[in-house]
Amino acid sequence: MNEDFEPKIVAFLCNWCAYMGADLAGTSRIQYPPNLRIIRMMCSGAVDPVYVIKPLLDGADGVLIGGCHPGDCHYQEGNYKARRRVAILKNILHQMGFDEERVWLRWISASEGQVFAETVTEMVEALKEKGPNPLKELWGT
């Protein structure tokens, strides 16, 4: 494991749950590593697979998608759509010989600040273990 390597993570967080969970981690002053950048989405179901692939091609080391728990989606079923889509996407990434474990989908509610912070910490650890994303090198993007 390269201790100096700091993975870069792009997160797409649902406005109604995971984004609020990230806010709660802040109001509760729970500290976590500063490796993640958040893009606010209206719902996890609005995350296009292309949005996940783009940062990976550009050199991000991981992508996190945060949605409401099953049954809690503000728009009824967006998170189920996200779950199906991410499963397919991971499958495709795997087929392409890419490490699909760099893409995480997590359910984080507005009251789960702790869970959010732990997720980030865990993801940073896991990506440090993996090392830098080779995709950018391979494709010379």
Binding site: A22, L24, G26, Q31, P33, P34, R37, I38
Partner: peptide
Amino acid sequence: ANIREQCSWVHRDDIERATLKATQI
């Protein structure tokens, strides 16, 4: 741009990286 809840409040011990993160946000 959310640089308090999602940055300054959660990265108290690393001013350098918190500053970079805030800029990017």
